[in-house]
Design a protein around this nucleic acid. Structure first.
Lengths: 241, 241
DNA sequence: TAGTGGTCTAGACCACGAC
DNA sequence: TCGTGGTCTAGACCACTAC
């Protein structure tokens, strides 16, 4: 078994789970870990950087690393795909297609997707049979054509697209609060004007080409988003909308 | 001027701003940059990792780095402090203290702050004179005592605390949507039941000791949160609330 | 096949923390 | 003062991309 930084990080995560390093305790020094794992200090540092980015440990120059409370993070795939996220939570996901149309792009869609015509999918997403989210996604033509041929009620679009060789690489998410419209309320089976968490999402491939532009609306208390940051690391922005 | 990875990153950021690398173009290779800046490849890699974490470039093994759209990120301080954020946006911040009481901690507060008694501050935050956010913050005793002695209407609590040697190091943020209560509506001058973006925030010092536990409520369309992530990096979690 | 980014090594020096 | 993490160097090999 090759001992790389991922292996070191996984071992340390397992140690956290096993309670070897309770929250508030200090990790061994980088040199000690390097000796223990038989790797160079740089490799240990890479592993520890991974754990820090997951919010598991915090760092201060000159002092040993502090173990923070356990956090279960989700990978990019779970973040992007409702289905994978649901599976990770142990809740069977579901979907119901409300509409799938091919039409001219709105100004916003054309700007984001760089495409005059789009496929637009409206879908209600279910968790254990309960509607929790409305997904309104615009796809550029070449992706939309693939989506149109799928059974969106029963299979994961993201997973199928990946199987077809479509690579998701980057995503930008913007979160805000909105009131449920009459249609939102009907689809989610809630009161009109109930508060919804709105997520605008633009996903691109490794070349920076837009793959989807989506507005998702989550039923008020069904879902929350969590972000960790520290003095030395942050990926969250707060801006005027 | 020492050429460290921060300097290299800053230079590249300036190049982006100057339009030397338009979105969609490719960066020079790590080796070329190392030669150009007179540093080792590792230093260049560290600079590029910084830019990647800011959503400025994307990376694929075997191919040169792709320049993404410009993004102006905010540092940890701007993220944590309403005042610094407002200044960074060019909007004069303001505040109005609604209540500051010393009382027994609720169960949730006691758990997060590890303190039986807390100082609890309710404050309306203004942007250019317009109310945009309600801040309800619990401080443990030793921090609260400092806060109680401040003029919270006119000075930045975060900044004053830092001047007094209180170090903010980590923060966890959870975002969801809620309806405005009658009090919320009155304080923000909006309709009751209007959608609000709720941010729960726990801030700790470098030792992992909790410094504040806050529930902030942003007026519907006043603010949005943005998160960037890629296949290899993510700090955002979606979870049941 | 040549070039690129990903990973790793084995050193080194410094600023900061703990004592 | 001594140990720690932060930074940097100058190499090396591999997997992947582009051609």
């Amino acid at each position: 078994m090759a001992v790389g930084y991922k292996q070191v990080a996984a071992d340390l995560r397992a140690d956290f789970d096993a309670g070897s390093y309770p929250p508030g305790s200090r990790l061994p020094s980088e040199s000690e870990l390097a000796r223990a794992y038989g790797v160079a200090r740089g490799t240990v540092r890479q592993a520890l950087a991974t754990l820090a980015s997951e919010g598991l440990v915090s760092t201060r120059k000159g002092a040993r690393r502090l173990v923070l409370g356990q956090q279960r993070l989700q990978g990019f795939n779970e973040l992007r795909s409702f289905s994978e996220w649901a599976h990770a939570m142990g809740e069977p996901p579901g979907g119901r297609v409300v509409a799938l149309v091919r039409r001219e792009a709105t100004a916003a869609e054309a700007e984001r997707l760089n495409s005059d015509r789009v496929y637009h999918l409206t879908r209600v997403r279910l968790l254990s049979g309960r509607p929790v989210m409305i997904e309104r996604t615009a796809y550029p033509q070449h992706i939309g054509a693939l989506v149109a041929s799928m059974d969106a009620d029963h299979e994961s679009i993201t997973q199928r697209l990946q199987e077809l060789g479509v690579l998701f690489a980057n995503a930008a998410h913007t979160l805000s609060a909105v009131s449920a419209t009459a249609e939102d309320a009907r689809l989610l089976d809630i009161r009109p004007r109930a508060p919804l968490l709105r997520e605008l999402r633009l996903t691109t491939d490794p070349d920076g080409v837009a793959l989807e532009w989506s507005e998702d609306r989550y039923a008020g208390e069904a879902v929350a988003f969590t972000v960790h940051n520290s003095v030395h690391q942050n990926t969250l922005i707060r801006g005027l909308s």
